[in-house]
Write a protein that binds this DNA or RNA. Structure first.
Lengths: 167, 167
DNA sequence: TATTGTTATACTCTATAACTATA
DNA sequence: TATAGTTATAGAGTATAACAATA
């Protein structure tokens, strides 16, 4: 079982939103039903947010998805890979690869757990804590930029409505 | 230049949301900053909506993305591929393949345009109109299901807030 | 030369399944 | 046998670039 730093090819941008022009939903065509449902504008806003955050991070391999993993690790020191993956809806193999990514960057370490040699506790390294702090600032900034047309009350409203949908 | 029906392999589900458990954001871990920004819940709701619609359509190759294209074609008869692709933020090659998909299903036809032999007008066929109508019903039903915890006023609020973000 | 559409190719991300090691 | 993690592999969807036909 490999615990040392894996090296995988991790170049490139990684997701559709990054490559997709933000002109979405601003065409002269009639969008028909797409204007009247929630699903489509949700997707458009997701792409906007994703694109904005990717630009703010300005380090293409560090995708929003990978940040989510770092955030979970930072907030839940010692969590197992299985837990982390489940929290983001990832398979075990995708989780392994995501954690490899941060480990290869020196941001995360797998510590063996006394009493159970099958599992690892995942922890930020010192360098990881710095990277994490810097990324969190960018995430906050990017999110503020995304919602710049909304008042603070409206942002609260939006989060409340979204929470009602996903419980 | 090929205009007749292309055959490509089009099995499978097609997107992350389909495969991803809807447990997202319901773990016992601390989600930290992810709880406090708009970007993450937007993604969670998008995945929920995508999963719900995919199940409602119950015909895996017909993804939400492909429905979007059919909706645009239905609402804009005779539009060019380039326009359709731009409206959804797709490259020309991805647009070609998406239209091939519907043409192979007998739902869409490419008609040559008098006076300009480089372009095609894209139209629904009679069968396409039926498929379109049936899918539209499912899209409405699925969207209603997604927002079942919201009052009609709240749905209007949500759409208004999303519109403010993407203009 | 520029535009429209097609094809070939490469790339990212994901899941499934097979595998190792532990329990 | 079951669980945690890793690796190999295949699949879907996208973009870029090269190409053909047309303007």
């Amino acid at each position: 079982m490999r615990v040392g730093g894996a090296k995988r090819d991790q170049s490139g941008l990684g997701d559709e939103a990054q490559r997709r022009a933000p002109r979405l939903a601003n065409s002269d065509l009639d969008y028909g039903l797409l204007k009247d449902v929630v699903g489509f504008p949700i997707k458009v806003v997701w792409i906007l947010g994703y694109t904005l955050l990717t630009r703010t991070i300005d380090d293409p391999p560090v995708t929003p998805q990978r940040f989510s993993m770092l955030e979970l690790i930072g907030c839940n020191p010692g969590a197992q890979q299985t837990q982390l993956g489940a929290a983001l809806g990832l398979s075990r193999s995708a989780t392994t690869i995501t954690i490899d990514f941060w480990q290869d960057r020196g941001c995360v370490e797998r510590r063996s757990v006394p009493g159970n040699r099958r599992i690892y506790g995942i922890y930020l390294t010192e360098a990881g804590r710095e990277t994490w702090a810097a990324l969190r600032q960018k995430v906050r900034r990017s999110d503020a930029e995304l919602t710049k047309n909304l008042t603070p009350e409206e942002v609260g409203q939006l989060r409340g409505l979204l929470a009602k949908i996903h419980q």
